[in-house]
Design a protein around this nucleic acid. Structure first.
Lengths: 229, 229
DNA sequence: GTCTATAACCGGATAGAC
DNA sequence: GTCTATCCGGTTATAGAC
């Protein structure tokens, strides 16, 4: 890339400032009022921009949600870095990572429901199974690859190949449970995470049993066929 | 209930006619154009009613979808009745039942995506985990209880208790896969159904193995705790 | 050519007259 | 129970400002 001329820098700067103001206003309002109750007009107003400007930077309200996701993903990464650097036990790493997801998302709990539904829509650009959300999904899958790789667990190759993606799916399921969780401090979700994390690691061990060989192959084949589009 | 007076009958009749016309117009249009492309105004127009009338009978567009579900559920029941009366093998019963779901829903495949997302929204009255959709969900769970009960399989009591609900969840997962399936004749979904139905029954058998006792207890406890609100 | 602003459009939902 | 008129908010068109 060539070095930008002063003019280009200025132009970009101005755009970036507006963009950042709109995004920040959106993130605030989503947290304050929820996704549906936040109007594009309100976002523009708080950002000191016009409605047209908002649409210049973000093609739709949904695209603002995508940024919202990226934002929480980065908070999540920062939150678990020390734990991943220290901890070697796979169960602990998995539990810690998924616990951190829900803790990071806690401030947005009230918003999460309506957001989840837009995301679940296959025709939405935000759908995690394809399209605009792909880069972010791949980052999360890579994170789970790191959770496994940094542990002292020995995972057979055929399982290791599919595991990160499966754990990403597992995380999504936990998040859906968390959305419904009305318990104080979201305690029930944390319990379910502890229980499932142990269970998953236990099942990984059991997968080596001769009686389970057949089912293991079938399950892996199934996941593979489901994933490859 | 007291016997209705002629006047009341007439009143009800007239209401029922309008209601039926609106519903039928909605079902037709959903199939023709999809959920989002169908406007409430178009539904009213085709039904020969006014917009206000439509809202008199159905509090929202989403509530029309609920009726749409009930409609397909009844088609599904009718489609599998002969098979369930004849077949005793659990794998076959399960496969047949779930295959029939996607076959029944096939005419609505294009619509299904956007509908699924409204349904996934926890705050939607249509959300299958609670609220308005509860009666229908219970009917589907009861159907899977019947799938199990009518088979010659011996299922341990602790598993049998949770199995119908789990199979309902399994059906939902299949439907979500089916929504994304672009293969001709939706062949991939049918393959996945065959594979998973066999796998599920196989795992039910394996659950009796002593090594799996611990995990089995944990899984059942988990499902139980997740389900009871 | 990049950004901002205003004025529509469209469709789900509601109010209230009849 | 039916209708018309209206609101409201996501989105789009487009005119102008830098």
């Amino acid at each position: 890339m060539a070095i930008a001329s002063p003019q280009e820098i200025k132009r970009t700067r101005r755009g970036e400032t507006s963009r950042a103001a709109i995004l920040s206003a959106a993130l605030d309002l989503f947290q304050e009022r929820g996704y549906e109750a936040t109007t594009m007009r309100a976002i523009a107003e708080r950002a000191g921009a016009s409605l047209g400007s908002s649409y210049h930077y973000f093609p739709s309200k949904e695209h603002l949600v995508l940024e919202f996701y990226r934002h929480t993903h980065e908070l999540h990464l920062a939150a678990i870095a020390p734990m991943l650097a220290r901890e070697k036990d796979l169960t602990s790493r998995l539990r810690g990572t998924v616990r951190a997801v829900v803790v990071t998302c806690e401030p947005f709990h009230a918003v999460a429901g309506s957001i989840f539904s837009t995301v679940a829509n296959p025709s939405s650009p935000l759908n995690p199974f394809g399209g605009a959300a792909k880069p972010l999904r791949e980052e999360v899958v890579a994170l789970y690859a790191e959770v496994i790789k940094g542990s002292d667990a020995r995972i057979p190759g055929d399982i290791a190949e599919m595991l990160p993606l499966t754990l990403w799916l597992y995380q999504m399921a936990i998040l859906y449970f968390w959305i419904f969780d009305k318990s104080p401090g979201r305690l029930r979700t944390l319990e379910v995470i502890d229980e499932t994390a142990e269970l998953i690691v236990r099942l990984l061990t059991l997968a080596n049993l001769p009686v389970l060989r057949g089912s293991r192959k079938r399950i892996l084949g199934l996941i593979r066929s489901v994933v490859e589009h």
